[in-house]
Design a protein around this nucleic acid. Structure first.
Length: 286
DNA sequence: TTGTGTTTTATTGCCTCC
DNA sequence: GGAGGCAATAAAACACAA
């Protein structure tokens, strides 16, 4: 790699770096004074071979502006452009190269800061959205809880009104219990639905009739049915929900996932009683 | 005036490309 | 192996508060 001694650069060739007032002029007036610039030029033209005191020299505003404009056009420096710029600005090509290098480093730092700001804004927006959805979710869960409690109360009232059950209900009860046992031993997602279909085929009844049977059993024989509250497996519950979805025209995984989530957060508690003992429970709309 | 933090210019060492 | 780029760093220049 090419290495330069300190005496190679223009700035290092300048003894007696401009006095204070000259330095301030650099900032305030956009360049060195004519006298000082002439001195610089004279040093530029001289070929000082000997090592002299090492002082850094800041570029004039005019030089910096020209370099900035050139940088805007292209942040990489071809050799021809470097030499041309150096000649135009009265600088060493090496100085121009160093200036571009440092400028690229500054640009990169700024770019990283900008990228960080954009990412942070995205993150904040996403977090706000998440928090909002979480609040919504809590409100909906609360509503669901209330509805469930209301259903429990309604069931309790209807239970009292039923005095006895018919012989056909006893038969259906035993059949459904068999079906439930089979369901418990089956991990498939459609196990509950299959049981339901089996029951239908055995029973030979229509949907409404089956619902009626469920209703009958839930009302009159809760303990033997096992379709109420905690005695029902989560799979069965899921399947009833899926059945409900398919009937009510709700498609896709989102609904199913939502039901699963609600099932976990709500149906595992003591409060989840007799939810499916209600006639229209499987077709409940959310 | 001085201490301190920031900016700018320049150097060094390493890496990649031709 | 030379040229050039980059990251890390030094050091001078500069800004500013106390």
């Amino acid at each position: 790699m090419k290495r330069f001694s300190r005496s190679d650069s223009l700035g290092t060739l300048i003894p007696n770096y401009p006095p204070k007032e000259e330095k301030h002029n650099t900032r305030n007036n956009g360049g060195y004074s004519k006298e000082f610039q002439a001195m610089l030029d004279s040093y530029d033209q001289e070929d000082c071979g000997e090592e002299i005191s090492v002082k850094k020299r800041r570029l004039s505003l005019h030089q910096v502006k020209a370099l900035e404009i050139s940088f805007e056009v292209e942040n990489k420096l071809e050799p021809e452009r470097k030499v041309k710029l150096a000649e135009e600005l009265g600088l060493e090509p090496r100085q121009v190269a160093i200036w571009f290098q440092n400028r690229r480093a500054r640009w990169k730092t700024k770019q990283l800061e900008r990228d960080y700001s954009v990412l942070k804004a995205d993150y904040d927006a996403l977090k706000d959205n998440y928090d909002s959805l979480e609040r919504q979710n809590k409100v909906l869960a609360e509503k669901l809880k209330e509805l469930k409690a209301k259903l429990c109360r309604d069931n309790a009232e209807s239970d009292q009104s039923v005095k006895e059950e018919s012989p056909i209900s006893v038969y259906k009860s035993s059949v459904m219990e068999q079906s439930r046992d089979q369901d418990l031993s089956d991990n498939g997602d459609n196990a509950g639905l299959d049981s339901y279909k089996d029951l239908k085929s055995k029973d030979g009844s229509s949907d409404s009739e089956s619902n009626g049977a469920v209703k009958e059993e839930s009302n009159g024989n809760e303990s033997s049915m096992g379709y109420n509250g905690h005695s029902l497996s989560s799979n069965s519950m899921m399947n009833w929900f899926q059945l409900s979805d398919s009937r009510s025209g709700i498609k896709g995984n989102h609904q199913t996932q939502f039901v699963r989530m609600e099932e976990q957060s709500l149906f595992s508690t003591e409060e989840s009683c007799n939810f499916f003992s209600v006639d229209q429970a499987p077709s409940l709309h959310w």
